[in-house]
Design a binder for these strands. Structure first.
Lengths: 138, 138
DNA sequence: CCGTATCCATTCCGATACTG
DNA sequence: CAGTATCGGAATGGATACGG
């Protein structure tokens, strides 16, 4: 974890990045969420990461409550960790469209129907990117 | 930019992170997208970032096509840069729910109606987090 | 085999000083 | 105002050795 590097940023994004903003963090979460990795060695196989760094990241995720480590040593995502899925999906979709196509498509596990990240309003209407801003603080 | 650190990862998310995966990158994009920052000094005011790092990040974004620099020196987001909005929104929403509430709500600029990041299928149906996976490669 | 700890080289980052 | 140069320190990467 980055700790309090972004502490002066009164912003949810900054606080999120204190937990997942280090190198390799997002790729580890991607593999945990979408490749079903749970073991230290699973991540070592797909990520060309230094062993000490992987160890540090996994411990950090446990400390931050994104993962729990079972008695057998397996790292399981918590609800907090699983809730991070849309971030990975949005990042993947952006890379897919603007950097270069990849082999990844998101689907439901049961019906296998495609699923995408979208911007929607209260009534469920799709909202164009350019129209979206932040609500000014009072 | 990180260059080719994640090169072996045949994945859109990894390629995206080579462009936006360094420290401060996402916060700079946040300020460009949601606070309307365009000048070097704008970012210096809200981000407690070292000047050399900010310089490097902004140049990197221009090199990567996320921003263009006008003759007056202002940094403007391109379509590629604007398309990154859902990632910041998803990250903010996660931080808001799981790390601590922030003052940020997303709305449309015209009607001021709330907008959120959602997972939807082809028919527009909302899809639960836990049901989403990736389509296996052929 | 799973995972951790250590050593060292390299890269990255932060603070400050400086230039046009 | 908009950056660039420099330098010390922190984070990272790679190899290897260690403990269960």
């Amino acid at each position: 974890m980055l700790g309090h590097l972004y502490d002066k940023q009164d912003c949810s994004a900054a606080r999120a990045l204190e937990i997942v903003g280090e190198r390799w963090s997002l790729l580890i979460l991607r593999d945990a969420m979408f490749r079903g990795h749970t073991r230290y060695s699973d991540f070592m196989k797909t990520l060309e990461i230094a062993p000490n760094i992987l160890s540090k990241r996994l411990s950090g995720f446990v400390a931050a409550g994104l993962m729990v480590q079972g008695e057998d040593g397996a790292y399981q995502l918590t609800e907090k960790g699983l809730a991070f899925k849309p971030v990975i999906m949005a990042l993947t979709a952006w890379g897919d469209q603007w950097v270069g196509p990849g082999p990844v498509e998101f689907i439901t596990k049961d019906t296998r129907a495609p699923v995408r990240v979208e911007l929607r309003g209260d009534a469920g209407e799709v909202t164009d990117l350019a129209r979206v801003g932040v609500k000014p603080r009072d």
